[in-house]
Every structure is written in structure tokens, then in C-alpha cells.
Write a protein that binds this DNA or RNA. Structure first.
Lengths: 358, 358
DNA sequence: ATGAAAGCGCTAACAT
DNA sequence: ATGTTAGCGCTTTCAT
């Protein structure tokens, strides 16, 4: 094939001509089909392909085979370390299997998510993995499902790394045990009033973790005080704002657990900016154990989640499904508490409860 | 088209049948070609497409049009905040233009880079953007070029966001002015012995920044002492190790500039672990201004590089090239010094120079 | 073991 | 303004 640039780009046909065989034969050796090919012929084909630096056109192959060797990851934001680590895990496993990885940032925007879902369907991607839990909007979910049905109808496969309305993650972890670990740790340190940094209301993960937090507290005969839960939106900025709110409310707890690390990190930062010291004045524990936890000051005590592994395992089940095996039952990867320096015993004689706002 | 799952997935032909027009007409309205179509016909086609929730098969379209609406980003590691921010910029602009983004982690491994280049060629991606500078291995570069020639021969476009052997970045920034800014700042604070945390030897960026550092110092009539440059490998771990080496050498400088932020952040952490205080004992400045700089302790003084914008602008030139316009001349985005808390005047009477190893 | 040829779903001449 | 049809490059029956 000669093209505009004046450079030759070879096709199956060129290889066939050079090797003096049919395109069928070339296809058979180059796509390692099970069809028999004489050793000598195979040699010649390989040699010809090598000589031409032939690379099969995946569009053509995809069209013919209905498979594209492509996986897509949907994340809220790839700059969030939670997602970049998961995505990296997926990419590692994809690479190991000859797949290529698409990354789609949805910014939790329903329209953006839908846009990508249509696009991915159009591209015939083999697998779509949802790194995050879903949005809680009922109608949106229905539309998402409609797209997914069509993706699966064309042989695509979808895998989830977080629970979605009712459905479990294919590969996930337990928010319940994670938050129980966090609460246990704080109780053991002597804390009796524990607050929570809530995530964005429209995410299933937020609801999930809030409920898990309540259960964790209930396990110790305590309940989560409304005044002690402050919105932090899963972000650093949200966490910082939460610190202000927390102090304005008179520090209604001696310890606080964040619905995720970003919120916790921002919260610690906000607290310090306000002159409080962590953990002396208030202990803080995060959730997820994203990389920055080790580098902030003080290093954050948090619930460790095997994020990279989540991605690897997630893609692995996708590949199983593509191979035609039945969907394995959901697995839950172990989480554990990583104690660092943001938690400690409450200050002796610390005033507990609301001391009045302002 | 009826398939295994028993679900209908519609094709152009189905839409044509439903709208009672030819596939050509459907194609014309759905791919907004310039070819005229009567308003009424267009309506019917649109209605039919809508009714079937039709989404064109991009493989088929790509095969026919020789364009895939796909861009690929090559990064060393998407978990490195430097790359995730650039990649996010690219994805934003790609999304805005209806393109989809592939992410390829090379881990600076020549084999991996080549693997992806072949794969991307096979997939007929429209654009390949190199987020990082190249590897310095001559033979590897030759092979890379061979692949790129073929990519371009098929209408693909390649854009670089960092200089490569001899070639300028299409969209880049000046390491020279960045490092001059860093040095000027330290000199102004009173430092006279300034060290450097060098990047991995096999990267062009490392050599580039080291040379820029030398120029910066020379501008003040100083030279970079060999004993004051320590390898930090562009990573946090490397930076931490560098701190140990630095102290073992007797702290041969009162201030150190990192070839990148990761190294600088690790270095600060290492110093602190060794009981030194930053900036009192030694000032540290980074390069790039990745997000974590704001969150470490002390917040890092660094050379700000508009990373997200680099990605956006980079993709923009790629799109121009795809549109057939000539390659614009290289642009250099402005960098500036962001002073935070990791730099200060040298301790009065600080011993300057090598005090003996160990 | 090898080859011929009919698609895969779309686009773009080339008619009409 | 609309339709016919020949590809795009590969895979895969079906022959031989």
C-alpha cells in the first residue's frame, strides 16, 4: 500500500505476495490460529512479515473477529491517587496480556459517563471496568444499564471494583470491616466521641461508608452524633473546609475518621492551619491508604486497601469472562489498619461534646 | 444484527431500512458529511437512528476513513503526579474534541515503549504524544523513529512535550530559565554552596536539567561542585537515599535543588528523618510543581510548570496537524518560581563545604 | 496443507 | 438529493 507520505505500509496481502502464499495462510500463521500450516510455509511467512515490519491492522482484525484487545477504565479523576493506582494495576495486567488501556475521566458527571459509554460501545472495547461506585441517580443508572446491555450484547464485558446499587463489586473490599478497624483503633486509644467526614451524597460509596461507620460505632454501643459528621466531599479542599466547620462547631469529637484519605488529609491540613495539633488535639484516620498518606505531616493512620491489586484482579476477571468462563462470585480483598502518626490517645481531660459554635 | 445474547445491535443498514433510504444517505447524515441531504430525509434518518439507539461501529468507520478518533499518551508512570497531570490535560482536550485517550506506561523500559509503539501503529491511533523526554540510548531511538515513521506514514501524528535528542518539544518549557529562577532565589537568600539532585543518567531530561543547573550557577560566577551533586533518580526513594548520601558526605551545600519534585520531596523527608531541619539546616527547591508540593512538610519551594496546560496545548497542536496544517514552531510555556517554606537563608555561620565523609 | 472468496460495517466515489 | 457499489485489511468457512 502506497500512501501520501510516499512510504510503504504493508498489509497482509503484501506479506502473502512476498511469501508466495495466500492471505489466508498468512493470516493463519500471524494470528496463531489453530489451523495447521506446514513448518516451511510458516517460516517463509514469518520471514516475509519480518522483512516488511508488518503489523496487522487491528481495525480490520477487530471488524472480522469482533474483538479489539482494548480495555477501558472509568474513573472519576485520574489525578486522584486512588484511581491512578487502580488504573495502573489494570494497565499492568492489560499490558501483560497484550491489551491496551483507555482511560476515561468522568468527573462524576452523568453526561460525561454516558458519553464515554456510548463511545466505548462504538469502539467495540472488549472490557469496561468501573473503578468507582456509581452515581445514585436512578434515571442515570437506567441509562447506564441500557448502554451496558448493548456493550455486552456485542461480546463486551463489564467489571466493577466497587459496589453499585444492590450489586456487589466483582472485586472489592469491605467498607464495613475497614471502618470497624478504624473505630476499634480509636476506641482502644480511649476516644469516646468520634466524628466522620462524609463523602458526596450522590455517590453510593459515600452512603456505604457512612452506614459502615455507624455500624462500627454501634459495635461499641455508641452512635454517630449528627453534629460530629461533617461533609468533606472526598476531596482535600472539602477536608479543609470541613476542618473549619468542625472547629466552628466547637470540635464535637476527639477523633475523626474520613470517608476517604483525601478528605482526611485535607482535614488534617485545615486543623493545623487553625492551630490545632494532630493527634494531640484531634486524632484523624483515613481510608484507602493512597500513596500520599505516607508523606503528609503527620503521616496518616488509615485503612489500607490493596488498590493496585484491585485493578489487577479486576482485569483478570474480565479476561476470564472474555474467555467465556462464567462470572466468578464476587471477591473481597482484605483491608487492614495501617497505624501511622495521626492518631493517639485523646488529650487527658479533653472536653467532649459540643462547646458551642463560633 | 442478531447476536448470541439474543439482543439486537443495529447497524447502518438497519437504520437505512427503518428510514427507507440507502446506507449512503444514512452515512451522510450520521457522519455529518458535507454532502447535501434534504431536511425531511435527514429527520427520518435521525429518528430511525434514535429509535434504534444506533452507534456507528468505529472499527468499520476507521477502516474506511483511516481515522480512529484515538490519541495515545506515553508516560513513564501514570502514578507519578507529573504525568497524571499532563495526561489529564490531554484527556480533557481529547474529550472536548470527541477523541478517546489511551494511556501507556513505559516504566522507561525500551522494550515496553517499543511494544506500545507497534501496538499503537497496529491500532491506527491518530495521535501519539510523548509526555516525557526520550531515553538516551542511540539504538533504541533509531528503532523508535522507525516506528514513528510508519505511524506518520499512515496519517498518524506525533507530538512531544519534552525535548528529545536534538529536537525541541512541540510544547515545552525552559529548564534553563526554571533552574536559573531556582538558583537566583537561593543566591538571593544568601546561599553560596548549592547542590543538585540529579535524575537518572539515561534520560535526556536529566542531562538537560543538569546542564541548566550548571548554567544557572555560572550566571553567578559559581560552579557546581561534584561532591554536591547526588543521584536521586527522579523518585522519592531516590531522594531519600540521596539525603543519606548527602549527609554522609558532610553536607556539602547549604541548599539543594532537585532535578524534579519527587527527588526533592524524598530528599526533604530523608533529611528530616536524619534529624536535620528544612530550611534551617538546608534549603531545598524542587522542579515541576506537582500537586503534592503543597501538602508536604514543609511545603516545597519549586519551579512551577503548567503541566495540565502542557497536555492541553500538546493535544491541540496534534489536532492541528491532523487537520493538515503545518507543524507550528515549538512553543515554550512560561515557568515561574513558587516560593513556599522549604527555602530560607542559610544558618548564620554555616560551615560551607565538605566536612569529611561518614 | 493451501487457496478462493464471502463477509465484518462503514465511507466515498461515481452514477442517476 | 439519493442510490449503487467498490473498497478498507483482516478472518474464516468451504473447497481442493
Amino acid at each position: 500500500v502506497r500512501n501520501g507520505a510516499g512510504t510503504d505500509v504493508s498489509s497482509l496481502e503484501d506479506v502473502a505476495a512476498l511469501a508466495k502464499v495466500s492471505t489466508a495462510t498468512v493470516s493463519r500463521v500471524l494470528s496463531d490460529s489453530s489451523h495447521p500450516v506446514a513448518a516451511g510455509t510458516r517460516e517463509r511467512v514469518l520471514a516475509a512479515a519480518g522483512a516488511l515490519d508488518f503489523e496487522p491492522n487491528m481495525l480490520a482484525r477487530g471488524l472480522a473477529r469482533n474483538r479489539t484487545q482494548t480495555v477501558a477504565v472509568l474513573v472519576h479523576d485520574m489525578m486522584d491517587e486512588y484511581f491512578s493506582e487502580i488504573a495502573r494495576g489494570i494497565e499492568d495486567e492489560a499490558y501483560a496480556n497484550g491489551y491496551v488501556t483507555l482511560i476515561c475521566n468522568t468527573d462524576r458527571d452523568p453526561a460525561k459517563e454516558l458519553h464515554y459509554l456510548r463511545k466505548l460501545r462504538a469502539m467495540q472495547v472488549d472490557v469496561i471496568v468501573f473503578a468507582a461506585g456509581g452515581l445514585r441517580d436512578k434515571q442515570h443508572r437506567a441509562e447506564v444499564d441500557r448502554q451496558l446491555v448493548r456493550v455486552e450484547a456485542t461480546g463486551g464485558v463489564v467489571v466493577r471494583l466497587a459496589p453499585h446499587d444492590g450489586g456487589l463489586a466483582d472485586v472489592g473490599f469491605s467498607n464495613t470491616v475497614g471502618l470497624r478497624l478504624a473505630v476499634d483503633h480509636l476506641i482502644e486509644l480511649g476516644h469516646r466521641s468520634i466524628g466522620f467526614l462524609a463523602g458526596p451524597a450522590h455517590l453510593t460509596t459515600s452512603a456505604d461508608r457512612l452506614a459502615a461507620m455507624r455500624r462500627g460505632l454501634k459495635g461499641h454501643g455508641t452512635v454517630l452524633q449528627d453534629a460530629a459528621v461533617v461533609d468533606a466531599g472526598f476531596s482535600r479542599e472539602g477536608g479543609e473546609a470541613a476542618a473549619v466547620a468542625f472547629v466552628e462547631r466547637g470540635c464535637p469529637a476527639t477523633a475523626v475518621v474520613g470517608a476517604n484519605d483525601q478528605a482526611a488529609i485535607g482535614f488534617v491540613r485545615g486543623l493545623r492551619a487553625l492551630g490545632l495539633v494532630v493527634p494531640t488535639d484531634v486524632s484523624v484516620v483515613g481510608f484507602d491508604d493512597i500513596t500520599p498518606c505516607r508523606y503528609v505531616e503527620p503521616p496518616l493512620t488509615t485503612v489500607h486497601v490493596p488498590l493496585h491489586d484491585l485493578g489487577v484482579r479486576g482485569l483478570r476477571v474480565a479476561l476470564e469472562l472474555l474467555a467465556g468462563r462464567p462470572r466468578p462470585r464476587p471477591v473481597s480483598l482484605p483491608v487492614e489498619l495501617t497505624v501511622r502518626a495521626s492518631t493517639g490517645p485523646p488529650r487527658p481531660g479533653a472536653t467532649v461534646g459540643i462547646r458551642g459554635a463560633g
